[in-house]
């Protein structure tokens, strides 16, 4: 953050003088970028085709790879359509997905709701930091999914034990980023606000520290979501009677790798969609953050 100042300085000095030159250079670069990007698209498409084609040829045409090891790609598609309305180990594909989503979102929102205010308080009030931080440092190195057995013991095998573990996994990044974000508040901006007549701590926190920490806080929310998603899979693999992880575990026992891969793909796609959604939300909430800083 503090390193930013000289950079902007460099950029601004003489920015006007460069306009003509950069325009010309810019046009040239746009041209070459167009050519490059076309080549890029072709190569990318080719690469996907080659991988999928190779997969198909190896499993279906040449049959070098047994389907119990790696199923042909089309099997995954047919399984997808088959499980859309046919129940597999208790639920349809949509049913399992909804169970998983419910747990992830439940734990995640609880984590955001509790974690961000706690992190902000830790960043702002020295005493709260001194009390909470050491315990936090003590518990932080333990991977959240290592809590699964204890959580099962405490909350039973139902939904609450999973929500607890997922809450824990998303909670940690939310707190840490909120805390760091507040601590990174530019002291100059605090000085400016004080000099403009802000008198109460609360106003300083509300007007200066929280907005300046917001991009960092949202980054923590995004990490938290990813972490929650991963922990969910572990929890469902270990102890569950529904959900995508459970479905995959059962498919492993039944030696149906196509359903495992189907589960992996759905988990990946949903995770990517949620991350993307959060990114868009970030852009909405923090319009002042330039793209290059994201």
């Amino acid at each position: 953050m503090t390193e930013d100042a000289p950079k902007t300085l460099l950029y601004e000095n003489g920015a006007e003088g460069k306009i003509c030159l950069t325009n010309i250079l810019g046009n040239l670069m746009v041209e070459t970028r167009k050519i490059r990007s076309r080549k890029r698209v072709i190569l990318s498409v080719l690469s996907v085709i080659v991988v999928l084609g190779g997969w198909f040829v190896l499993t279906t045409v040449l049959r070098w790879v047994p389907p119990a090891f790696l199923p042909p790609p089309q099997n995954i598609l047919t399984d997808f359509f088959r499980l859309l309305n046919k129940s597999y180990v208790g639920h349809t594909l949509i049913g399992h997905t909804l169970v998983s989503l419910q747990i992830v979102l439940g734990g995640f929102f609880l984590a955001v709701l509790i974690g961000i205010p706690l992190g902000i308080m830790m960043g702002w009030f020295k005493r709260i930091e001194a009390i909470v931080d050491p315990m936090f440092q003590l518990l932080r190195p333990i991977p959240p999914l290592a809590w699964i057995p204890l959580s099962l013991l405490w909350f039973g095998i139902g939904i609450s034990s999973k929500i607890f573990v997922i809450w824990l996994s998303a909670f940690v990044p939310c707190v840490i980023n909120a805390y760091t974000g507040i601590r990174l508040t530019e002291p100059l901006l605090v000085k400016a606000a004080l000099g403009l007549g802000v008198k109460r701590q609360w106003d300083l926190l509300r007007e200066v520290a929280i907005p300046s920490a917001l991009p960092v806080i949202l980054g923590g929310v995004r990490i938290g979501l990813g972490s929650a998603w991963m922990t969910l899979v572990a929890a469902e693999l270990l102890a569950s009677d529904a959900g995508l992880g459970y479905m995959m575990q059962m498919a492993r026992r039944a030696l149906e790798p196509s359903i495992i891969i189907l589960g992996m793909l759905i988990i990946g796609i949903l995770g990517a969609i949620m991350a993307r959604g959060l990114q868009m939300l970030e852009k909405r909430i923090c319009p002042w953050v330039m793209d290059k800083e994201r």
Partner: peptide, 29 residues
């Protein structure tokens, strides 16, 4: 105190506020 306004070398504008909101800031208080 707002009786003594400071202009800093590094501008110290609030990046999350528009020009209007930045100028308005002290008046609110």
């Amino acid at each position: 105190s707002a009786e003594r306004g400071v202009v800093f070398q590094q501008f110290a504008l609030f990046p999350w506020k528009t020009v209007f909101e930045n100028v308005e800031f002290g008046l609110k208080y």
